[in-house]
Simulated assay, not measured.
Amino acid sequence: MLLKYLALLRYNHALARLSAVQLICYFGAWFSHTGIFTLLIELKAPVWALSLAAMMAFLPSIVLAPFNGIIIDKLPKRTLMLALMLTEALSVLALLLIDSLDFLWLLMALIFIRMGVGTLFFQTEMSLLPSLLAKPHLIIANEIHSMIFAFSYTAGMGLAGIFVHFYGIKASFLFDFALYCVGIFILFGTRFREPALQNAATGALKMFTQTFYYIKSKPVILHLIFLHALVGLFAYDTIVALLVDYEYKGILSVALAIGFLNTARAFALCVGPVLLSRFVSEKNMIYFLVFQGLCIMLWACLESNFYTSLLGIFLAAFFCNSIWSYTFTRLQNACDSAFYGRIVAYNDMVFFIVASLVASGVGLAFELGFSLMVITSFIGVLFILGSFYYAWVRHRYF
Rank of each mutant, 00 (worst) to 15 (best):
L2H: 07
A16C: 14
R17T: 03
H33A: 11
H33C: 07
T34I: 14
F37A: 04
T38D: 05
L40R: 00
E42A: 10
A45G: 06
A49D: 07
L52I: 12
M56N: 03
F58S: 03
F58K: 03
L59Y: 02
S61I: 01
V63W: 05
L64Y: 02
L64V: 05
L64I: 10
A65G: 14
I72W: 00
T79E: 11
L82T: 12
L84C: 02
L84S: 01
L86Y: 12
T87S: 05
S91R: 05
V92S: 07
V92T: 12
A94G: 04
L97M: 13
L104R: 13
A109V: 13
L110G: 10
I111Q: 03
L120I: 04
F121A: 08
M126K: 13
M126T: 14
A134T: 08
I140K: 09
A141H: 08
Y153E: 10
T154W: 05
G161V: 07
A171C: 10
L174A: 11
L174H: 04
F175K: 09
D176K: 05
L179F: 05
L187D: 01
R193S: 15
R193V: 15
R193E: 15
E194G: 15
N199W: 07
A200Y: 06
A201G: 13
T211Q: 12
Y213W: 10
I215Y: 02
K218E: 13
I221V: 10
L222M: 09
H228I: 07
H228S: 11
G232H: 02
L233E: 02
L233S: 01
A241W: 03
V244T: 10
V244H: 01
V244M: 04
V244N: 01
V254I: 10
L256R: 11
A257W: 00
G259Q: 09
L269M: 14
C270W: 08
V271Q: 11
N284E: 07
M285N: 00
M285S: 02
L289I: 12
Q292E: 11
L294P: 00
L298I: 07
N305D: 15
T308I: 11
S309D: 08
L310M: 10
F318C: 11
C320V: 15
T329G: 03
R330V: 05
A334T: 05
D336W: 02
Y346G: 07
N347C: 12
L357F: 04
E367M: 11
F370N: 07
M373V: 15
V374P: 06
I379N: 00
V381S: 04
L382N: 02
F383G: 03
L385P: 10
S387H: 01
V393K: 07
V393Q: 10
V393A: 13
R396M: 15
